[in-house]
Design a protein around this nucleic acid. Structure first.
Lengths: 180, 180
DNA sequence: CCTCCTCTTGATTGACATACAAGAGATATT
DNA sequence: AATATCTCTTGTATGTCAATCAAGAGGAGG
């Protein structure tokens, strides 16, 4: 079982790269974060990145995955609050990574990897909230309501809404679900 | 008043370029539609594009503007129909240009030109529907409802929903507005 | 005939994602 | 101990792209 040259497992090194890539993707966006910059931030040459990741999209997905895991983990801390508060929390959590959200939507047509991540993301988001819907609805209706909520939240994240407008939107969404 | 070399006004030539760029942006997306391809499609060298447009984003905005004008013009033909039908119409109209929508959101942070177009787009979309809201609401509440509708429609455009799901979503949005 | 003005092109630059082949260092095998 | 093999790293290179610049070509007006 050959270990890494520097007493470091491959996974650990991958994680380091993901950390460096993460802050660059978030601050500079997908195009602004070149493989060269990411490599420099990780103390490597650009080529080395391709040992750990097949291409830029695979690295991006690794970054997105880490954020998604973090999000799902942190959601447990607010899972008991009313839906409106959970929505506000979700928007606030995602807004710092709005560049990632926009990138996913922009590249979903070009990159199969990102397309796959995208549908997985939506699946997990729906799972987060679907059992909190106490009212009985037809499956079609349920999907429509879930889509409205999901898309409205994505919109709130990627567009410029101030705190008040965000809260209004989230409460409107929750009230809507309650009033069915 | 010196005319164009080929008996063609500058505006006319710009329009030809926008036409060529338009179909390429729609079919290949922003990254896929290189200035070289666009120039070739218009029967020009890439450099010539830069005589008519300052940069790629300016050309993109010209394309987006044309679609927006078309959309606003065609909306008059459905303006008398119930809101739900207008929403369905809007989603169906925008879905073919979903790449443009995604591009706008992805580049809004990098290009001031596109950022400006983006806010103008949302302003005009809201104007389309705001006077159809017969119920009295506070300004804040009104904005929240408008945001939900706008974002839900954008989401329906950029995500894969079949015709039934689209109709369900649009009717749900309209029903909610009616039931306030 | 000369001189602007409008448009077009060729040559070039610098950044980028990515491929390839060769190296370096540690481990495993003989 | 010598060699082979695996893991990782780097140098070099390729092709593509947006954008720039300087130089032309053609018509209009003086």
């Amino acid at each position: 079982m050959p270990r890494n040259r520097n007493d470091q497992t491959k996974e650990a090194k991958r994680d380091e790269i993901v950390t460096a890539a993460s802050s660059l993707f978030v601050s500079e966006g997908y195009d602004g974060a070149s493989m060269g910059k990411i490599a420099a931030a990780a103390g490597l040459t650009p080529n080395t990145l391709y040992w750990y990741f097949g291409d830029k999209d695979e690295l991006f997905v690794a970054v997105a995955d880490r954020y998604l895991d973090l999000l799902l983990e942190q959601h447990t801390t607010v899972a008991e609050q009313p839906l409106a508060e959970q929505f506000v929390w979700l928007v606030d959590s995602l807004r710092p990574v709005r560049h990632l959200v926009a990138t996913v939507h922009a590249r979903v047509a070009r990159s199969p990897r990102i397309a796959e991540w995208h549908s997985s993301f939506h699946r997990q988001m729906e799972a987060l909230f679907e059992d909190q819907l106490t009212i009985e609805l037809s499956a079609a209706r349920r999907n429509a309501e879930a889509a409205v909520v999901t898309f409205a939240i994505e919109g709130a994240v990627t567009h410029d809404l101030d705190a008040d407008a965000t809260a209004d939107l989230c409460h409107s969404l929750a009230q809507r679900l309650a009033g069915l």
